[in-house]
Design a protein around this nucleic acid. Sequence first.
DNA 1: ACCGTTGTGAACATGAGTGTTCACCTGCTG
DNA 2: CAGCAGGTGAACACTCATGTTCACAACGGT
Lengths: 179, 179
Amino acid sequence: MSVHLLQTATSVLLKDPTASLGDVAKAAGVGRTTLHKRFPTRTDLVRAVANDALDLIDSVACEVDFDSDDALEDLMTRLVALGPRVEFLLRFPGLERDAELRARIEAMDQPVLDLITRLQGTRLRRDLPAWWILHTLYAGLFNAWEAISYGRLAPLDAPRFVLTTVFEGVASAGATDRT
Amino acid sequence: MSVHLLQTATSVLLKDPTASLGDVAKAAGVGRTTLHKRFPTRTDLVRAVANDALDLIDSVACEVDFDSDDALEDLMTRLVALGPRVEFLLRFPGLERDAELRARIEAMDQPVLDLITRLQGTRLRRDLPAWWILHTLYAGLFNAWEAISYGRLAPLDAPRFVLTTVFEGVASAGATDRT
DNA sequence: ACCGTTGTGAACATGAGTGTTCACCTGCTG
DNA sequence: CAGCAGGTGAACACTCATGTTCACAACGGT
């Protein structure tokens, strides 16, 4: 039941970051008092939601073989499927000001950065820094999630959209513009 | 002086979307009363900031020759240079709930969408919808602005980063992965 | 049947942001 | 000099989210 509460909080806070605790409680079908008992302060709730998202990422990240050459594609495909629960991490304002969360996010980024750096020896371009590539991946995920939530993009199309766009770009195959 | 006020408000609200009007006034070096006199309500201020950003976009968009083949590159390069003033439009939460602003943004997107659709006949891939390409462009801008504000990216590098990433992708030239 | 746990609603106090009014000061113009 | 426009700070009332407390109901285990 606590799980459902967190998920509800995620979607409510994602739709309106300024939603009151009363709104969250009502949406979850519980009393505001109950919410306060489980998460004494608003910050606690936000942190719990964020950590829930991070747990979710952890759970898929540990299924990915980071030594594989397809590790990035694999990871991205799995992340796309997670949807709103993780979108929260990229969208919620002021989340980066929580030192504890920031540390966990950075710790989670590190293996991906290492993977990118390694792949820059073979499949990824070397004229862009690894962090830029990482953020480009995130931006692709973000776009997909947003498009899905607006109903513009079919969830099953999302992985293909993200992977082709991020890896190959939006220019048609033959067109090489400015070097 | 009113111009400086809007710019200050932009940066303050961008750094912390929940900043109080008192914070904005203090940052701008004016009294809160003065702020209220110019923008009677908080909504008015936010709308003014957003419209200022839209004016800024208008001013560069009208310098771009949308019939040129390089129109997209030209537009993107100019947009990158605008920085935080426009970043506000993409970052500020709840902005899309203002019908008037949403209409103006859509009206502004339309010619770019048309341009993209036209270029899909030549330089842009046809297997992605125009709106997806548009959002990919925006995501590139967003990444650049964020990286610049964090000091990770030199402003002069930004246009190249955005254009190569968005158009050619992050995969190295030779590597063609999954179709 | 008793009791601890858990959830619930009601009520309250508090603090912050907001919008408004008013008296005062400054600088400029006629 | 008089008057006016624009800016300023102080004070006020109002709203709302928040955090806290309390008494009560439901439920399960002993």
